[in-house]
Design a protein around this nucleic acid. Structure first.
Lengths: 260, 260
DNA sequence: TATGTTGTACTCATATCGAGAATGACTCAT
DNA sequence: ATGAGTCATTCTCGATATGAGTACAACATA
């Protein structure tokens, strides 16, 4: 930004009326399916429709990361700042994305282990973890059978961008562990990849790969107390290692359509 | 964002005085070195220091991408919207990042082939392509010998984030071609990777790899008119292919420090 | 013409990947 | 208890990718 431009607008009354908000795409895994945290709007516009949790940034008092963490905790009644990974996703500022006024929204992406049901915050009439598969994310494209909901504002696009980011980050960072509790088994880690990528993975190869990437996981020496629900031996327990990047990366099988 | 929060702030006079700007990290390659487009500030604060080009978003009239493209063209006198790749980088909103008032800046990353010298825009006292290596990007860390400049505001951090993004994108997208003209040779493409990554690459292996990734480049059937400056045969010419992702990726050699 | 440079194509050993199968340890229904 | 089915973990094997080095012909320069 240049100085003259600032001086020309230095008088606050001359600013365009812009609101800056944060919206959070909070993802977790429940019952083997990817879920996103949504709140139900109690007022127009989009009354009764579901939206991403979010709110105004207290500009000058907090930074954007703090605002996102505050919204995630405050508006849904989830405290648990502990093991939640939060990162900036992208910023959306198209004219008309809010019918009432110009709004620039900084979207955040949050990954966390299975969390309790949220309570509705002061602003939302309801809040719930919602299966991503039950949402209509684009006008075109195949939709799952059953109930499909359309999100308020441009939140379908934001969620869609967040999912794409999450899918990509699983390839070259150890963030999949952010969806799991402190200790976990390799098959649980594989389940994270499978439900975020929506692809079945080869159990043996996945096992070999995870153990071969330095710093991805480290063994605890323990095993689960019993076998799985449907049988099978006890599994060894691991915790997240100290790697920030997976090298070599754990590439998802790419299709021609992804590439072109 | 929730409805009640909006209603509470519906009166524009109650908005906090937030300015929304775009800043552009425009990268190109000149004389075998990575350069970034900077403008010299003509007024306080940071008068005489260099900064990223940027300016206010005309909220409600244009979207963020358009604002970034406009700033890149307008403030520097570079029109050339043609072959420039522009993508959103991140958003910066820490309190105090501008000493005068709260400012939220949406940063963009631009890649382009070698471009003419900019002329100073209406706001900047000067504008120039500056070698990235000549800039002091962090307080700590090794600095190159010779002139090092410190950027205004938090622009060193933004540039640093932009460089890291660029380095990563070269691995799994064909964006290196955005630094080159319509047709180019494989050694020219290798030079892009080498100067963005700041690492020497094995010529033979790079050649094999580029040709083996589907859709990365396609041959034109032509060759350069003559050999290189210091000799060597004519090189075959290629143009960018239709791939949006490189599969398998062209991974840069990772060091232990990158990973942990 | 001699010399050095370099684009491109090899070779070869090693690492990684995808697919499948073997081995037990476990759960559950009978 | 017992048998059937499930599944964590480890192997094997062929296909593919990678890193390092060599070969050679085409080119610029002196």
């Amino acid at each position: 930004m240049t100085d003259e431009a600032f001086l020309a607008d230095y008088d606050p009354s001359r600013y365009p009326a812009v609101a800056v908000t944060v919206d959070v795409v909070a993802l977790t895994i429940r019952d083997g399916a990817l879920h996103v945290l949504l709140v139900e709007r109690g007022e127009a516009p989009f009354k009764g429709r579901w939206a991403l949790p979010g709110g105004f940034v207290k500009v000058g008092e907090e930074n954007l990361d703090q605002a996102a963490a505050r919204e995630l905790a405050e508006e849904t009644g989830l405290r648990s700042p502990g093991r939640v990974h939060l990162e900036q996703l992208a910023t959306y500022g198209d004219p008309g994305r809010d019918p009432r006024m110009p709004v620039v929204s900084v979207a955040y992406l949050a990954f966390g282990p299975e969390m309790p049901d949220p309570r509705a915050g002061s602003d939302a009439s309801d809040a719930a973890w919602t299966p991503v598969a039950s949402l209509r994310l684009s006008a075109s494209g195949a939709q799952p059978p059953g109930v499909t909901r359309r999100l308020a504002f441009d939140h379908a696009r934001i969620l869609s961008d967040g999912l794409e980011r999450a899918r990509g980050k699983l390839e070259y960072t150890p963030l999949a562990t952010a969806f799991l509790p402190e200790t976990f088994t390799i098959p649980e880690l594989r389940a994270v990849y499978e439900c975020v990528w929506d692809e079945a993975l080869h159990a043996g190869n996945f096992h070999r790969k995870v153990l071969s990437v330095p710093g991805f996981v480290e063994g605890t020496g323990d095993t689960t107390a019993s076998g799985g629900r449907k049988g099978g031996p006890r599994a060894r327990l691991y915790r997240a290692g100290d790697a920030r990047l997976l090298h070599p990366a754990l590439l998802r099988p790419a299709t021609e359509e992804d590439i072109r």
